[in-house]
């Protein structure tokens, strides 16, 4: 018990810290940060741990959001059940698509995901328009059940709920990072051929990693779905696909807190400069180029290496002085 607390305590502290920020910051902002950081974690898991870069992440998030949305719009009123439906839809979808996609080499994988996202958008916007009601979207905010302890329409309730979910996801990811599976994922990223020659079935490792990552994206999707009480094809827009890439890279892929830091900075910036965000493509695009040119290391890794750099600088100063 003590050992578990020692391993995972930091995560609880960090997310409790985000909760405490509520004293100073608006709830909507923190909720957005929490959900988007879960979404970014999915991307970061794929890229940082498995070395798979997907330009189609909105698809996996969107499928789950629609799972929840369709359930709550047409069938039930229980938001938790709706979330379950969404997550199951997302996981099943990722399982099937993953079986096909993880066999591809990296360039094909990225492009195939881009295509998937474009098609997904099209399917929900037009092909299934009689069910999804196209761009009008599905509305069910008023239909969702409310409980005294958990009322999704109360921002504070929702924030608490989202933070607990996020902390849970971070704990799972950290646990995986420490497991043999986590090492195998990193090994796939570094040298898949070599891992095969240690006898591992890398196809299955990649498949499971892919499904896990996109289950995380699915959780983000269902959270958005119950938070807004509304879902429309915009959630799967190809135009929004690069956003998570930017945020992921900004925070630093593969690091545990990178997704949280990146999201925080990005959304804060988005809110602050919302005036020029009419042309948000300009901003996101420029950031993407700059982050890549800066060496794709991200804020988190800069923070991690800062103490070491300072120490090196100090040692250097001492030796040059002596």
């Amino acid at each position: 018990m003590m050992r578990l607390l020692k391993t995972y305590g930091t995560i609880l502290l960090v997310f409790a810290g985000v909760g405490v920020l509520r004293l100073a910051l608006p709830g909507a902002f923190l909720i957005h940060v929490t959900i988007f950081s879960i979404y970014t974690m999915a991307f970061s898991f794929l890229m940082g741990r498995l070395g798979l870069v997907s330009f189609g992440q909105p698809a996996y998030m969107g499928i789950a959001a629609y799972g929840t949305g369709l359930y709550l719009h047409y069938f039930g009123t229980n938001p938790l059940l709706g979330m379950m439906v969404g997550i199951i839809a997302g996981v099943a979808f990722a399982g099937v698509i993953g079986g096909l996609f993880v066999r591809l080499s990296s360039s094909y994988f990225t492009l195939a995901n881009l295509a998937l996202c474009a098609i997904g958008f099209f399917v929900f916007q037009r092909a299934l328009v009689h069910i999804t009601r196209g761009d009008t979207g599905l509305w069910y905010l008023g239909r969702m059940e409310r409980w005294p302890l958990l009322n999704f329409r109360d921002p504070d309730h929702f924030l608490t709920f989202a933070l607990i979910v996020a902390a849970g996801i971070w704990i799972v990811v950290k646990g995986l990072d420490r497991s043999v599976f986590g090492a195998a994922c990193l090994a796939v990223k570094a040298n898949e051929r070599k891992l095969q020659f240690l006898g591992y079935n890398t196809y299955r490792i990649k498949w499971l990693g892919f499904v896990m990552a996109n289950s995380i994206a699915a959780v983000a999707g269902t959270l958005y779905a119950v938070y807004f009480g509304f879902v429309s094809p915009a959630i799967m827009d190809v135009l929004r696909a690069p956003e998570v890439v930017v945020v992921g890279l900004l925070g630093g892929v593969g690091s545990l807190y990178g997704p949280l830091i990146g999201t925080f900075v990005y959304i804060a910036m988005q809110d602050l400069v919302s005036a020029i965000f009419v042309y948000w493509e300009l901003v996101v695009g420029t950031m993407l180029v700059l982050v890549m040119m800066a060496g794709e290391r991200g804020i988190a890794s800069l923070l991690e290496s800062a103490p070491r750099l300072l120490r090196m600088r100090a040692r250097h100063d001492r030796s040059s002085a002596g």
Binding site: V180, A183, A184, L186, A187, K189, A190, N191, R193, K194, L195, F197, L198, Y200
Partner: peptide, 16 residues
Amino acid sequence: ASTFDNLRVIDNLRLA
């Protein structure tokens, strides 16, 4: 030379 450069030496051996 093929090793997993993003893992520690001992973790390479542990995987094997």
